[in-house]
Design a protein around this nucleic acid. Structure first.
Lengths: 238, 238
DNA sequence: GAGTGGTCTAGACCACTTC
DNA sequence: AAGTGGTCTAGACCACTCT
């Protein structure tokens, strides 16, 4: 493990365990350099990770402090795992994650998809329409478009499980980032039927563009989530 | 301006202007060091900002590339301004931002507020219940709790405008970060009445804990937004 | 004035990709 | 083998806070 990761992990654990408690002052960077026998830039980097993660704050001239976090908030932060597909997100706690494929086609990208995925006119995309279940309960209705030339050999069996798994393990593609927008709307008749809710019940709409570590777009997706199963979290730092 | 900020801004502008277009390769770090007559760490820092912002990706052994972003996506990203209060967020484009104060009290924090703000039992908090308008249209219903000892002298007049402005200009307090959760629900009767929608219409619920640059909590808020006026955005990087 | 974190350097060495 | 970005150093100097 890299040195700055070791320092980051060590201090993070001390915060979680309460060795550094809420509002406590951390040792000065100078002293951390000695303690970990390392240079200032490396300590700074480790601390900056903790700032981004929302656990500590730094004040020039004063020092570095643990934020005034409740135990619940600490737990929430340390369990935030980002940038996972649906399966990886919900598969953890022994949940049963399944899918029903409602549609699977190859079509020419329409204007919206072309724009979102930055494709050339006439480009073909897979369109995948799936209903995702957690423990046999329908939770998310998902419409996804993927450029066919970037996802060769995609088949029905991959859709029944995790597409992300196929991208990673079989095609050796790496997801680098996702740009997401959340909005809210009333369920239309189809959405209500699929998600087993009433028409006009609230649904959360997540629109997502996903990028590979090559910079290429790989996926444009719109998901409709049952209100009672939706939550999104974010930490915003100045 | 700091050197890494200059480099960051310069390259960002070149991406926005199309001098570096989608999927284009940026000059190597080595060359950027020469071009800006600076050291590697400084160039790296500037580029890492652009990675976090979602504009570029870097691959060791290969180089640095502009993401395959549509023009719309570039615009969206470059206009993302985070960590603002309601007023600053909507005041920009010449919108008229106003508030109706529905309730303003000082009470002992209940268990939830005590926990969220990490307060001691018996602590007193302001509770502020406001309806926020944009161009005279009710948009957000907001319930906020703030510890009284951290916000001395808060008065009704401050609530009618921007509390954040009072914190910053009068109390010289600086917001450092906010931890947010988004969920979705049906409007109850009161929410429907206030937001001028129907009962059971969808509303977006934003729960937020706000921290000062001292690490102290300053605000716990729950806002209910009209579905047609709600949008949240985030960029997730590996 | 003393001490904090922030910026920046010039260079060494490492991990990875590409040829 | 050559070239990329990643990590790390030892130290200089700066900006800010507190006394």
């Amino acid at each position: 493990m890299k040195k700055y990761e070791e320092i980051y992990t060590d201090i993070k654990n001390k915060i979680i365990n309460g060795d550094y408690s809420a509002t406590a002052q951390l040792p000065f960077e100078k002293d951390l350099c000695e303690a970990y026998t390392t240079s200032k830039m490396t300590v700074k980097r480790a601390l900056d990770l903790l700032v981004d993660e929302g656990l500590i704050i730094k004040r020039r001239g004063s020092g570095t402090f643990v934020k005034d976090l409740s135990q619940k908030e600490i737990n929430r932060i340390t369990q935030l795992n980002q940038l996972n597909g649906f399966t990886a997100t919900y598969d953890k706690d022994g949940n049963k994650v399944t899918s029903k494929i409602l549609d699977f086609d190859v079509i020419q990208a329409d204007d919206i998809v072309m724009d979102k995925l930055n494709l050339k006119p006439g480009s073909f995309v897979y369109t995948i329409y799936r209903l995702r279940y957690i423990n046999d309960k329908p939770v998310v209705l998902e419409k996804t478009a993927m450029p066919i030339e970037r996802v060769p050999g995609l088949e029905q069996t991959h859709l029944e499980n995790s597409i992300y798994h196929y991208l990673k393990e079989d095609l050796d593609l790496t997801i680098q980032s996702a740009h997401r927008q959340y909005t809210v709307k009333k369920a239309d008749e189809d959405e209500a039927l699929q998600l087993d809710i009433e028409k006009d019940d609230p649904v959360a709409v997540t629109e997502q563009i996903t990028y590979l570590d090559t910079g290429e777009t790989i996926e444009y997706g719109i998901t409709k989530s049952r209100a009672d199963m939706f939550i999104a979290e974010t930490i915003v730092t100045k």
